[in-house]
Simulated scan of single mutants.
Amino acid sequence: MLACFAAATVAASTDGALAQAKQQQMAPPAKQQAAPPPAAQAPAIKQIALTEKQIEGVLAASKDVDAITDKIPDNAKPDPKIDTQLDAVAKKNGFASYDEYNTVVDNISLVLGGFDPATKKFVGAEAVLKAQLAQIQADKKMPAKDKKAALADLNEALKSPPPAIENKGNIDLVAKYYDKLAEALGESEE
């Protein structure tokens, strides 16, 4: 299960990917209108230096954001009421807007994708993917159909890895909150 979480985090590399993808269908300009499939190239992440306050804000807001975005049907039309609700949750938790919240989540997810879930140490996204690949290949209990799909997803993710982390301080900050972040952000990806 941890391998699936890490694979989803790395492959999506923009967390909020599920929540954000649903909301992006409603977001006004400049964002893609649908979630890319795991093998598709994700849009470029605006990398920022994270702060402890931002991470705490994400942890505080994630359940409320998920509660709103989980109700959004796929292919939903833009709804200003939902945009207003998401902005209100983001502002209540210290963000200027829901877009800023998503930027922070994207940066956290980029870093989380490089953590080995077993050791909780940062090893880089490629190393995590390769370890998951080996783990799935060695799994004798996984049904062949599921194994084939998982291996295909991981191989695709290896072909288009997430960008290098520009703000190395983000690694230590995410490590400090690893368990809480993995729980809060992992729920939306399972």
Rank of each mutant, 00 (worst) to 15 (best):
K147E: 07
Q32C: 02
K121S: 09
Q33K: 13
P117R: 04
C4F: 11
T69E: 04
A138C: 04
A150T: 15
P29R: 14
A19H: 15
D79I: 06
F115G: 00
P73C: 09
V174C: 09
A182E: 10
I68G: 01
L185P: 03
E189M: 15
A12M: 15
I48S: 01
K63S: 10
A125D: 14
K31Y: 13
A30I: 12
A96R: 05
S62H: 03
F122K: 07
A149L: 14
N75W: 08
K120T: 05
A17S: 15
D64W: 01
Q25F: 03
L18W: 05
P162S: 09
A164C: 08
E126C: 12
L133G: 05
A60S: 10
Q132Y: 10
F5N: 12
S160I: 09
E126A: 15
Y177T: 11
L18Y: 07
K22E: 02
K176M: 14
L181F: 06
D79K: 02
P43I: 00
K53D: 13
S62N: 05
A76D: 01
I55D: 07
D179I: 06
T103F: 03
A39F: 13
E126V: 15
A7P: 00
L50Q: 05
E56L: 04
A19D: 15
L112K: 07
E52P: 13
A157F: 13
S109P: 06
A131N: 10
A144M: 09
D66S: 09
G114D: 05
T103K: 10
Q135M: 06
T51A: 08
Q41L: 08
A131L: 09
K71S: 07
A149C: 03
G186N: 07
F122G: 03
P163M: 01
A149R: 12
D172L: 10
A164H: 12
S13P: 00
A144Y: 02
I48W: 00
Q23A: 14
A67W: 03
L173E: 02
A17D: 15
Y177R: 12
A88W: 03
D87T: 00
T9H: 02
D172K: 14
A35I: 11
Q23T: 14
V65L: 10
P29Y: 06
T9M: 14
Q20T: 07
T51Y: 05
S109A: 15
A138Y: 01
P161G: 14
Q135P: 01
K92C: 01
F95L: 06
L133V: 03
S13V: 00
F5M: 12
K91D: 04
Q25Y: 03
G94N: 04
A90Q: 02
D87E: 07
M142E: 15
K81W: 04
N75C: 11
D66T: 04
